Amino acid sequence: MTPYPTERVALFIDGANLYSAAKSLNADLDFRKLVDMYRAKAVLVRAYYYTAVVEGEEFSPIKPLVDWLDYNGFTVVKKPVKRFTDAQGHTRTKGNMDIEIAVDMLELAPRLDHAVLFSGDGDFRRLVQAVQAKGVRVTVVSTLKSQPPQIADELRRQADVFIELESLLPEIGRPRGAPGSLITGSDRP
């Protein structure tokens, strides 16, 4: 779905989910191109990027990306990764950003015509439905081209439009590891 030139649009990027989808397509994304693409097509109100970060590490592979995004007009929403031990005694990490995405999208909905969600997480189906009930069109960007598909069927069906991430790669992608890529194989949003 192409936004209208006067349409107020916001991008909601689930960093870990989008990273996984791009990785499954063997591609890196150029976030400058992504924002420029939407600015050229509509009135970009806000571009959110959501990620969990590991605190206390001397070097984090996500830090350069988060710094770049923050400096280049993105609203970066981050929270610390939580570590826990499961029933089998294995240490696990959790950094789910679903609530943050849902709150921001619902709060911004009255000032939007169109929300673009970069995630395939089926948990967002009800969020998309609620935002649509406020009169906002919702586009979901993810991929069916991976095995298994990165997009949940219920989310794809709920969206006004589903955009296959692979179809955007000529405009916003780079081959994995290409010079100047903003996400490389070692980065993990």
Rank of each mutant, 00 (worst) to 15 (best):
residue 98 D to M: 05
residue 98 D to V: 07
residue 99 I to S: 08
residue 99 I to L: 13
residue 100 E to T: 00
residue 100 E to Y: 12
residue 101 I to F: 05
residue 102 A to P: 09
residue 102 A to F: 05
residue 103 V to Q: 06
residue 103 V to H: 01
residue 103 V to A: 03
residue 105 M to D: 11
residue 105 M to S: 11
residue 105 M to Q: 09
residue 107 E to R: 05
residue 107 E to G: 02
residue 107 E to Y: 03
residue 107 E to K: 06
residue 107 E to S: 04
residue 108 L to W: 00
residue 108 L to E: 14
residue 108 L to P: 13
residue 109 A to Y: 00
residue 110 P to R: 06
residue 111 R to S: 15
residue 111 R to W: 07
residue 112 L to D: 01
residue 112 L to F: 00
residue 114 H to P: 07
residue 114 H to M: 04
residue 116 V to A: 10
residue 117 L to A: 12
residue 117 L to G: 13
residue 117 L to P: 12
residue 119 S to Q: 10
residue 119 S to C: 07
residue 119 S to N: 10
residue 120 G to Q: 08
residue 120 G to H: 12
residue 120 G to V: 11
residue 121 D to I: 14
residue 121 D to R: 09
residue 123 D to I: 11
residue 123 D to N: 13
residue 123 D to M: 12
residue 123 D to S: 13
residue 123 D to L: 10
residue 124 F to H: 15
residue 124 F to S: 12
residue 124 F to Y: 15
residue 124 F to N: 11
residue 124 F to E: 12
residue 124 F to L: 09
residue 124 F to T: 13
residue 124 F to A: 11
residue 125 R to K: 15
residue 126 R to F: 13
residue 127 L to W: 06
residue 128 V to F: 00
residue 128 V to Y: 01
residue 128 V to K: 06
residue 128 V to T: 08
residue 130 A to M: 12
residue 131 V to H: 01
residue 131 V to K: 02
residue 132 Q to A: 08
residue 132 Q to P: 03
residue 132 Q to V: 05
residue 132 Q to L: 03
residue 133 A to E: 15
residue 134 K to M: 08
residue 134 K to E: 13
residue 134 K to T: 04
residue 134 K to W: 01
residue 135 G to Y: 00
residue 135 G to Q: 02
residue 136 V to E: 00
residue 136 V to R: 00
residue 137 R to Y: 08
residue 137 R to Q: 09
residue 138 V to H: 05
residue 139 T to L: 02
residue 139 T to Y: 04
residue 140 V to S: 07
residue 142 S to H: 05
residue 142 S to E: 10
residue 143 T to Q: 05
residue 143 T to G: 10
residue 143 T to K: 05
residue 143 T to M: 07
residue 144 L to H: 13
residue 144 L to F: 11
residue 145 K to R: 15
residue 145 K to M: 14
residue 145 K to Q: 14
residue 147 Q to L: 12
residue 147 Q to D: 15
residue 147 Q to C: 09
residue 148 P to L: 04
residue 148 P to K: 03
residue 148 P to I: 03
residue 148 P to G: 10
residue 149 P to K: 00
residue 149 P to Q: 04
residue 151 I to D: 13
